[in-house]
Every structure is written in structure tokens, then in C-alpha cells.
């Protein structure tokens, strides 16, 4: 093989028209300026640190006393290397502050995002906090937006968006939690939604790597992969666990199957035993359908276990109704599923 042949082979690999570029020159420019500002801030900070360290060392003998040191809360950090996609069996997102009145939380770990929804009395959603993998989503530009606070105190404003005609008690805050990686806080109902969104955004931490545990175990579906895992735990032992499987374990763009268990009857709807805060069965943007004979629920004394195949119009469900029925009978709830300490891992297989 000579040089010419190697060159020809390499050229054939990129001979086809490439997919549309996700590189937006304006965003590159903005990112570069942000990077330059951070670099300057780092240099200044390092200089200030050296000066401060010298001052502290000089004063140390006079500062020594027996008072306990207050616990410092680390500021939120711009993540320099956010993930492109996440492992749905692990949870990266955490909050180091929550508003009063939160009685329950939903945690959702998907391939493309990680999400916490804070619920108030009656399991009403108050706020949904999400971090997305790099290059996954962009804010909807049809909505009017205004600049809000700088989340990382680096001078870059976040964006507050309100759908047309929406209540002034709701809206979404968007900001970059890392290069090309968006985070959002959606406020469902608050008297001061912008302030609450900014406080929650500043409380976001992304360095956790907690294993996801579920209140049930389920045998693996042949040929299907886990795309999302979600849990809810609330007062008085209320709980829910939801798993979503599809053929490639990535986005839920096609048909999928939901396996769930809950004892929160108020949250149970006709076709889906437990639906997270949003209209989740429709979140791929397509009008998906639940086959009438395949919305299978297995009520126990206090719990409802469900296996629901959801099909994209024009294509069949990823498992047949009979298989869904068999799967529903094999979902195994843990003892006392209302106590998250009893939840299990691994939960598939």
C-alpha cells in the first residue's frame, strides 16, 4: 500500500456530505471570550490567593482560638468537561439548597439528561432542575427571553424564558453548566419565579456519581436497553420507581416500554401507572400511543405495578402485549418499598 492509496482511503471516509455542523461561530466566539475572562480571573485569583495566604500566615499567631470553624459552602462551579451522555444507572446531579415546603423529590437519570423535580404538598411540582449532556439541546428561541443573573459569577448572564401568555408565576432559566452543555430550571409556580430559579441554579452541583437504586427488580427484556431510570420518595412512605427501555438505550425517539411501581394512587393515570411531573409519555415530540390491550397493571395490596409498551404511530410496540403481561407478573417489589434504604441495585436482570 503506497502513500497515494492510504490518502485515497482516508479521503473516502469523509467523501460523503457530513451532517450539519453543530459548531456555531457566534457561540465559539462567545465561548472563547468566556474562556479568556476565566483565564484572567484565574490569574487574578491566584495572585489574590498568594497575597491572602501571606497575610493569613503573618496573622496566624494572633488568630488562634478555640472557636469552631464555620463550615464553608463551596460555590457552584462551571464544569469544564461535562459529559456528552450520561449513564442512566448513576446520578450526577445534586442540590445543596432547597426552598421551604418541599415534601418529596423525583430524580430522573436519562442518557441525555439528569433531572430533579421538587414537589410540594399534594405532590404538586414546584421546580424542575435539569442538566443536559454536551450539545443536546438549545433553548427555544421562539420564546421571549431576558438576561438573568450570572450563575457562576463570571459575568455571563443566564436567560429567563417565559412562554407567550404564560403565568408570571412560571418560566424557565437557561444557562451553560459547561461548554456546549445547557442546564435549565423550570419553575412551575412561585410568587418570585426568577429569584427562585437563580437560587436553585446556584445550588446545582454536578460532581456526584451516586448509584441509582429502585424499589423493584425486573428481568431484562431481550434486545432492549435501559434509557431512563426515575424515582420518587415522599412523606408517609410514598414512593415511585420508573424504568424506560428501548432498542438502543439512547433517546426515546421510537417505541419504548415503561416499567413502574408506586403507592401514590393520586399520581396513577389510566394508561401509565406513574407519570413524572410532565406529560412524560409524549416527551419525544411525537404523538406516541399506548396499545389498548397492553397497558398492563398488577395491583397488589397497596402498590400498583405496571408495564406499558408505548408505540410510535406506524410502528409496533417494542414488546408485544403478552410479553408485557408476563413482565408485569415478574416485577419484584422490595420489602417495604416506601423506605428508600430498602431499594436495590442492580435492578434489571
Amino acid at each position: 500500500m503506497d502513500d497515494y492509496q492510504v490518502g485515497r482511503l482516508l479521503h473516502t471516509l469523509v467523501a460523503d456530505e457530513p451532517p450539519p455542523s453543530r459548531v456555531d461561530p457566534q457561540r465559539v466566539l462567545a465561548g472563547a471570550k468566556r474562556r479568556r475572562r476565566r483565564r484572567r480571573v484565574s490569574v487574578l485569583t491566584a495572585g489574590a490567593f498568594v497575597v491572602a495566604l501571606g497575610a493569613v500566615l503573618a496573622l496566624l499567631p494572633t488568630l488562634r482560638n478555640d472557636e469552631p470553624t464555620p463550615v464553608a459552602i463551596a460555590p457552584a462551579e462551571f464544569n469544564l468537561s461535562p459529559k456528552h451522555v450520561f449513564d442512566p444507572t448513576r446520578f450526577a446531579l445534586e442540590l445543596d439548597w432547597r426552598p421551604d415546603g418541599v415534601v418529596a423529590e423525583e430524580h430522573e437519570s436519562a442518557v441525555t439528561y439528569q433531572r430533579i423535580t421538587l414537589l410540594t404538598k399534594g405532590l404538586s411540582p414546584l421546580a424542575t432542575i435539569s442538566i443536559n449532556g454536551t450539545g443536546q439541546v438549545l433553548p427555544d428561541e421562539r420564546w421571549p427571553s431576558k438576561n438573568a443573573a450570572s450563575i457562576y459569577d463570571d459575568g455571563n448572564p443566564s436567560h429567563w424564558l417565559q412562554p407567550d401568555g404564560a403565568s408570571d408565576r412560571s418560566g424557565q432559566l437557561w444557562w451553560f453548566w459547561g461548554p456546549t452543555a445547557w442546564a435549565t430550571v423550570r419553575i412551575h409556580d412561585s410568587s418570585d419565579p426568577v429569584d427562585l430559579a437563580v437560587r436553585l441554579a446556584k445550588a446545582v452541583r454536578t460532581a456526584a456519581n451516586d448509584p441509582v437504586r429502585m424499589p423493584f427488580t425486573v428481568p431484562a427484556f431481550g434486545g432492549l436497553k435501559l434509557a431512563r431510570a426515575a424515582t420518587m420518595s415522599g412523606p408517609d412512605g410514598l414512593y415511585a420507581g420508573v424504568l424506560k427501555f428501548n432498542s438502543d438505550g439512547r433517546w426515546l425517539g421510537g417505541s419504548w416500554v415503561t416499567v413502574s411501581a408506586t403507592n401514590a394512587p393520586d399520581a396513577v393515570r389510566s394508561s401509565t401507572p406513574y407519570v413524572l411531573a410532565g406529560d412524560d409519555e409524549y416527551d419525544s415530540g411525537a404523538a406516541n400511543s399506548v396499545p389498548e390491550d397492553a397497558a398492563v397493571a398488577r395491583p397488589t395490596k397497596e402498590d400498583v405495578v405496571g408495564v406499558v409498551p408505548v408505540a410510535v404511530p406506524g410502528s409496533g410496540p417494542v414488546i408485544e402485549p403478552d410479553a408485557a403481561r408476563r413482565a408485569a407478573s415478574t416485577v419484584d417489589l422490595v420489602d417495604d418499598p416506601g423506605d428508600p434504604k430498602n431499594w436495590k441495585r442492580p435492578f434489571v436482570g
Partner: peptide
């Protein structure tokens, strides 16, 4: 983009690489 694709064989990652490189070029 084409060079980046040959290096990593993934268009998504290629775009991320190009974006990172162009930001450094601006600096």
C-alpha cells in the same frame, strides 16, 4: 470538521473538538 472526524470517527465529538480548538485559536 473532516480532520476531526478522521481523528475520532464520531461527528458529534468532532464538532466538540473543533469548537474547543477554535476557542483556543481565538485566545
Amino acid at each position: 470538521r473532516r480532520v476531526a472526524f478522521l481523528l475520532c470517527q464520531d461527528w458529534h465529538r468532532a464538532d466538540d473538538l473543533v469548537q474547543g480548538a477554535l476557542e483556543r485559536v481565538y485566545l
